[in-house]
């Protein structure tokens, strides 16, 4: 009996497929399905692009005043710790 992959099956395996985490046999079936089903091909392609577009965004520099306040809070904590040890 041949196991036929439905679109619903494909959707459930989409994560592992996108992450390259499925075994070669399943991967082969999924690829066959995408090649035959234009809708699933589009879903797979746009899901992959969604992940890539987020991964491509570098974190913006923190505003200087926020960085300054952070460093000042840390320095205070450090001074407190070292002061406690010295006295």
């Amino acid at each position: 009996m041949t196991f036929l992959l439905t679109c619903k099956d494909f959707l459930h395996e989409l994560n592992d497929y996108l992450d390259g985490a499925c075994d070669p046999e399943l991967r082969g079936k999924l690829e066959k399905h995408i090649n035959e089903c234009p809708n699933c091909w589009v879903i797979c392609d746009t899901s992959n692009k969604t992940i890539q577009v987020y991964r491509g965004m570098d974190p913006q520099p923190i505003p200087q005043e926020i960085h300054d306040r952070l460093m000042s809070a840390i320095q205070k904590k450090m001074a407190h710790k070292c002061g406690g040890q010295a006295t």
């Binding site: 974190p59 913006q60 520099p61 923190i62 952070l70 460093m71 840390i74 450090m78 040890q85």
Partner: peptide
């Protein structure tokens, strides 16, 4: 071991990502 510059370096390395 109480090395402040080392900790500051860790802060500078990751503060953007943690803030995001």
């Amino acid at each position: 071991q109480g090395d402040s510059p080392a900790f500051s370096q860790l802060v500078t390395r990751y503060d953007r990502k943690i803030y995001r």
